[in-house]
Simulated assay, not measured.
Amino acid sequence: MSLDTRKFEVLRISILSLCNFACVYCAPKEKENHSPKKTYNQYLTPELLNTNLTRLLPHINIKEVHLTGGEPTLHKDLIQLIQIVKQHSIEQIALTSNGNFDKALLEKMKSAGLTRMNFSLDSISQKGFETLSDRKNPVFQILDQIETAQKIGFDIKINSTILRGFNESEILDLLEWAGKRSIPIRFLEFMKMGPLHKEHPLYFYSAEEIRNQIKTSYQIKNYPTPQDSTAQYFVTGEGYIFGMIANHTEPFCESCNRLRMDSQGRIYGCLSDETSFELPDSSDEIQNTLNQAMLTKKTKFIGSELSMKYIGG
């Protein structure tokens, strides 16, 4: 697909850069002084979100807004942000969370208009969870949060980032836990992003290795996958659905329809490019800005030293 025919259809927004976990691939302790080249406001304000959506919508047909972070449930105005997106008649409103939040928030988010939740879950063992997140929260509470979200009617997916030497031994356990609950799970190749940018080869575990490990215990076949999906889906003989998000070994850059926004309201066209743009007031200038953002898209994922939490992953 050429740049001339591609369109922005999904808007991913990092509504804040703070998180209550310190995962090894995002905020490792030995890299705690790592900071982005630019400074970032801590929270996206409801006023700025409303302004930017008002400016963008005449120019692009946004099918989905995906709220990310940091940990988006830490945002003090989260419910208002969801309501603003809903007011702009955007039907699909998703949120990615680590699951460490007050359970009462689930019903509030659903009432506000949230339709889907993606949970980041890299381990279901207490030891593995503590090692990866650098937190001692009981992992069963995270698992219970996921099941509760499913029960109240959210469309649920699980994202598991696999790092060599950390959690590759839990791939089958993660698949079984999700599969028995009819929750699709996506296994992510560790992306060359943020503070471990230079050490990426040390921890990289490929999609092929993940699939081969699954094949030792399951028969798998292809599962219908939307054309613009970041994941390639498969299903086991037991009906367990899983996806592979393989930015490095099986890149999907040429079909990417994502536009990203940070907590300052600046937009990014590509995860592998730190170039950002402020949305201007003029309608003509907005279209030109979107065209410039589209031109930053790469044909192959190359990564960035900028952590994904700053640009809506």
Rank of each mutant, 00 (worst) to 15 (best):
D144L: 04
Q145C: 12
T148Y: 08
A149E: 03
Q150H: 13
I156R: 09
N159P: 09
N159W: 07
L163E: 11
N167G: 04
E168N: 12
S169R: 10
D173N: 15
L175N: 05
E176Q: 13
A178C: 00
G179E: 05
G179A: 04
S182D: 12
I183C: 02
I183L: 01
F187A: 04
E189K: 07
F190H: 09
M191D: 02
M191C: 06
K192W: 00
M193Y: 01
P195H: 06
K198R: 12
P201N: 14
L202Q: 12
F204M: 01
S206G: 10
S206L: 09
E208D: 13
N212F: 00
Q213A: 00
I214P: 04
K215P: 01
T216V: 04
S217K: 15
Y218W: 12
Y218G: 10
Q219F: 14
Q219M: 08
Y223D: 04
T225G: 08
T225E: 02
T225Q: 06
P226H: 14
Q227R: 14
S229M: 04
T230K: 12
A231L: 05
Q232L: 14
Q232Y: 01
F234D: 02
V235A: 10
G237M: 01
E238A: 14
Y240G: 07
I241Y: 09
F242H: 01
G243I: 03
G243K: 02
M244S: 13
A246L: 08
H248Y: 08
H248R: 11
T249E: 14
T249H: 07
E250C: 08
P251V: 11
E254C: 08
S255Y: 11
S255C: 05
S255A: 13
C256I: 13
C256V: 11
N257R: 15
N257T: 15
L259H: 10
Q264I: 01
Q264G: 14
Y268M: 02
G269C: 13
G269M: 13
L271C: 05
S272C: 10
S272D: 09
S272H: 07
D273E: 12
E274V: 13
E274A: 15
S276G: 03
E278M: 05
E278L: 10
L279M: 05
